[in-house]
Design a protein around this nucleic acid. Structure first.
Lengths: 220, 220
DNA sequence: ACCTGAACACCGTTCAAGT
DNA sequence: ACCTGAACACCGTTCAAGT
């Protein structure tokens, strides 16, 4: 039988399922991603997805690996410090595009190929720069911990969009000054200020950690 | 009518609901915490919970605040550095007891009173030690990011329980050495070694960050 | 004031049946 | 080889009804 003309949709495959799941989670949040909605998005019944993904946990693992695949692989062309700095900024940028990914890492234990490739490249750069095995482990652990934790916290900060700012200031001043004076001071006089810069805050921490690692590395 | 003798269970209240939810999440994981199971644990139908909690999001917020309430409030008796060091270790210890809490922070935006009290105490110690508003914000941001990210990653590391170690070594040696040589080297020669110490790894990062903060603080 | 039964609109997953 | 309908054992949440 000839394929009818309205059958424009190409055959489903694993990459399309995972890609569509990532897009859906970006748009509507991870908590509203269901096999049924994902099927609907792809013009297919939910049960068809099980031909390409063994269950929802498998899909989740693949989504996280898909996010890692978007991160630029750190290149060994320069010194370890600028390579690690660029990588950190790239990781944060990608994770900010997929805010659900960081929280999901808590429940997943089997890293995919893109994740392993990424970590292998990081360790490779540190080892070639003369870091011992132990020091390379500690360096990548500190850097990754900081990056993931920063992204996790970034979501919970009040958005500095104008409009909500003025209102937030008033509410804060009234409600919180007495009970949480330092939080109130910080929010009003720093976080809600027009010049507040998330990127600069992130890079302050990265440079502080890189300074520390350089010192430890030289002392060895 | 007189209360019958087998009615031993005291009246339900919000604290009992939240406490039971935390215990259930600790024991069986956050993904298997449902209003129905929680009700069953408390000897009550699921719908009764809505008398003490406005919905599941409200319950989640309260659970996270309950976890923060377990953390020792940083005390101002000593210098900021040892206070921050003790606090960091206390936060990690508590979050390790409730591994679901860190991942959940991604989706929550309204901090509870215990959370605010905690952050207020941290900021207070830094401000009294002479940190400017901006520097206090950056200091607590770097420290918290590192702590949360470390706990998040800690879960994904292979358990160093004997027995699984030997097997893991064999699997790794066969499978991964070729594709991910640095990850393989790191795992076999460091992470899976008997002396591997999570606490020491955590404290290495904390001390590195505290060193950096001390230097920045003195330069001001 | 607190608890419940029934109901609604959802979930993930299986399995036999279709093409 | 891939897709589907029907079914199963679950979800969160509402609401009128009970005490």
């Amino acid at each position: 039988m000839i394929n009818p003309g309205n059958e424009a949709r190409a055959r489903l495959n694993r990459d399309k399922v995972v890609g569509s799941a990532i897009a859906l989670a970006d748009a509507s949040g991870i908590e509203s991603l269901s096999m049924r909605k994902l099927g609907g998005e792809l013009g297919v019944e939910a049960m068809s997805l099980y031909n390409h993904v063994s269950n929802k946990g498998d899909l989740t693992d693949a989504m996280i690996d898909g996010v890692f695949a978007e991160i630029d692989l750190p290149s060994g062309g320069t010194d370890w410090r600028t390579a690690m700095r660029h990588r950190a900024i790239s990781v944060r940028k990608v994770l900010a595009r997929h805010p659900w990914a960081t929280g999901l890492m808590e429940s997943r234990t089997t890293p995919g190929p893109a994740t392993l490739r990424h970590h292998d490249a990081v360790l490779g750069i540190l080892r070639e720069a003369g870091f011992s095995i132990v020091l390379a482990a500690q360096a990548s652990s500190v850097l990754d911990s900081y990056i993931y934790g920063f992204v996790l916290q970034e979501r919970n900060l009040p958005a500095t969009s104008m409009g909500s700012t003025k209102l937030a200031q008033v509410i804060l001043a009234r409600l919180a000054t007495q009970d949480y004076p330092h939080v109130a001071e910080m929010t009003v006089e720093h976080v809600l200020q027009p010049g507040y810069d998330h990127d600069a805050e992130f890079e302050f921490g990265i440079d502080l950690i890189l300074d520390g690692l350089e010192r430890v590395c030289r002392a060895t």
